[in-house]
Simulated scan of single mutants.
Amino acid sequence: MGGILVPVDGSKHAEDALEYSINHFSDEEITALHVVEIPQGYFTATAPDPEDIPQVEAHKEEAEKLLDDIEAKATEMSAVIETDFELGDPEDVILSYAEENDIDEIVIGSRGISGVGRIMFGSVAEKVVRRAEIPVVVVH
């Protein structure tokens, strides 16, 4: 597959990362990936299938809307992008998705939707930068 992977979560920084990717990698295939995080705790640990947890179902619906909005924004910018969503731990999913799809580069926003905790980088961006075996561009 190759191309550019842009993790998206609805934050301004993720939107900026997508715009950066479209503007700088217009000849590459761009994939916007949203990760639906599975909640931790007793209920999740005892659920037969984490996807059936009502909270996860609601987040999957939100992910579909977010990705539809992202596709519309890309179209406004005269770009065609792929979108996808996965369930799991964001940094693990981002890195495994990149490896499984032979992604050439990750472009990630410096902070996600939670935006607290770190001065320069969000925890997901920092972990992706530290663990990725391919180039990572952090958009601030």
Score class of each variant (00 low, 15 high):
M1T: 14
M1P: 09
M1W: 10
V6L: 04
V8E: 03
V8R: 01
S11W: 08
S11L: 03
K12S: 13
A14N: 06
E15H: 02
D16L: 11
L18G: 00
E19V: 13
S21R: 00
F25A: 02
F25V: 04
S26H: 11
E28M: 14
A32I: 06
H34G: 01
H34F: 07
V35K: 01
V35G: 02
V35C: 04
I38L: 13
I38Q: 07
I38H: 11
Q40T: 12
G41D: 02
Y42R: 12
Y42E: 14
F43W: 04
T46K: 03
A47Q: 07
E51Q: 13
I53R: 00
Q55N: 03
V56R: 03
E57Y: 00
E57Q: 15
A58S: 14
E61H: 04
A63I: 08
L67S: 07
L67E: 07
D68L: 11
D69K: 14
D69S: 15
E71P: 01
A72W: 03
M77H: 10
S78H: 14
S78P: 09
E82A: 08
T83P: 00
F85C: 07
F85W: 15
E86N: 05
E86T: 04
L87K: 09
L87P: 02
L87C: 10
G88K: 09
D89F: 08
D89N: 13
P90K: 05
P90Y: 09
E91C: 04
E91A: 10
E91P: 01
D92A: 07
D92F: 01
V93I: 15
L95A: 10
L95F: 07
Y97P: 00
E99W: 10
N101W: 08
N101V: 02
E105R: 11
I106L: 03
G109R: 01
G109F: 08
S110P: 01
R111C: 03
R111G: 00
I113L: 13
S114G: 15
G115W: 00
G117F: 05
I119Q: 09
F121C: 01
G122Y: 01
S123E: 05
S123C: 12
K127L: 10
V128I: 14
R130D: 10
A132W: 01
A132L: 07
E133A: 10
E133I: 05
I134F: 05
I134P: 12
P135H: 13
V136Q: 11
V136P: 07
